[in-house]
Nucleic acid binder design. Sequence first.
DNA 1: TAGCGTCCATCCAGTGATTGATGGGGAGCT
DNA 2: AGCTCCCCATCAATCACTGGATGGACGCTA
Lengths: 177, 177
Amino acid sequence: MIDGELSRRDQLVRAAFALVAEAGLEGLRLRRVAAEVGIDQSTLHHHVATKAALVAAVAEHAAGLLATTAPPAHLPPAAALRAHLDALADLVARRPELFTVTAELDLRARRDPSVRAVVERQEAGWRAVLTGLFTALGEADPAARTELVIAAVKGVRLVPDLAPLVLAQLGATDRTG
Amino acid sequence: MIDGELSRRDQLVRAAFALVAEAGLEGLRLRRVAAEVGIDQSTLHHHVATKAALVAAVAEHAAGLLATTAPPAHLPPAAALRAHLDALADLVARRPELFTVTAELDLRARRDPSVRAVVERQEAGWRAVLTGLFTALGEADPAARTELVIAAVKGVRLVPDLAPLVLAQLGATDRTG
DNA sequence: TAGCGTCCATCCAGTGATTGATGGGGAGCT
DNA sequence: AGCTCCCCATCAATCACTGGATGGACGCTA
C-alpha cells in the first residue's frame, strides 16, 4: 500500500474479477481466487469476510471502471455524448471482460441485495448523465433515448465485435445516421 | 402423451424452466425439479440423462417460445416489423420469466457448447428475419439496424417495464419517432 | 542490546452441508 | 414372468467456512 503495490484485498478482488470473467459467478471458487494470489484459501477469509462480500467488492471494482466513461463536464452536450459513446466503445474493445462481468452481476443482482445496491447506484449515475445530455440536446423524450442507449449497450455487452456498429447508431441526434 | 397431458420429460423441462427463472441456472437443483413434478430425484435421471441435457432442453423450450414472435410471412415489411415488435412487447409483458431465462442462457452459452448451439441457432433465425425486413424496407444499413434491435431487446430483458418504451423507438423507419 | 510479549498473516487439517449420480429392490400392469 | 416406472439408501466429490498452530515483525523495558 505504501508504494504502488496493491493491498492483498485488492489483489484478491482483481483475481476474483478475472475469474468471474473466465468462469462466471457460478464458477467462482474461493480456493482458486486465493491460489491466484498465492495464498491459502483460509487466509482469504482474513481479508474478505465472506464470498458474498468478495462478489460485492468485485461489483464495486467494475462500477469504478465503468465510471471512467463519464464525459468531462466542460464539454458541450453533443460533444459530451460523442465522447461518452466513444469511451464506451473503447472500453468494450480494450476490456471486454469488464462487460462480461457486468452481465454476470446484472443477473446476480436479482437475488443478491448487496450486489443489487452497487449495480443500481452505478446505473442511476449513468442514467442521470444520459438524460442530462439528451435534455440539453433538446430531445423530445430524453428518458426514452436514455433507456434505448442503456438497453443497447447492455445488449451488445457479450458481443464486443458488434459494439461499434450498435453504438454508432446511438450518437446521431436525428437518429438517421 | 396421448391426450393433452405432458410427458414426464416435458413436465421436468417446464419445471426446470420455472426454477431457472426463479433461482437462476446457478440455483438449479435436480432435486427441486423432481420434487416439483412429484417424483424422486433419482427417477429424474430416468427421463433426462444428465443435468446438462436438462439445461439444453430448457434452452430448446425457450427458443420455441421465442419463435412465436416471428411475423406472418404474408404481411408487407412495415406491418411485419410492427407485428414482430408488438408480439415481442406482448411476450415480455405476459411472460417476463422467459426473458430472464434467455438472459441466463446467453451467459451459460459462453461455456456450454450444447447450450450455445441452441442459442446460436435461435439467434441466427431471428437475425435473418430482421435483416430481411429492414432490407425490404430499403434501410441503408439493414445489418446495423438488426443488431440495434437485437441489442436493445436483450438489454431490456431484465426490466420488462421499460420494454415498451425501448421497443417503440425501434419500429419507426425514419427512426425519429 | 538483549529479552519478553503482542499482534498479524499464514498454513494445515477438518467441519457439516449439499451436490450430482448410482444400484438394489419393489409396486403395478400386461 | 416380464416390463415400466418409481423410491430408498447411499455414494464420492465438492462446497464455504472454522480451529489450532507456526513464525515473523514490531514495540516495550531494563
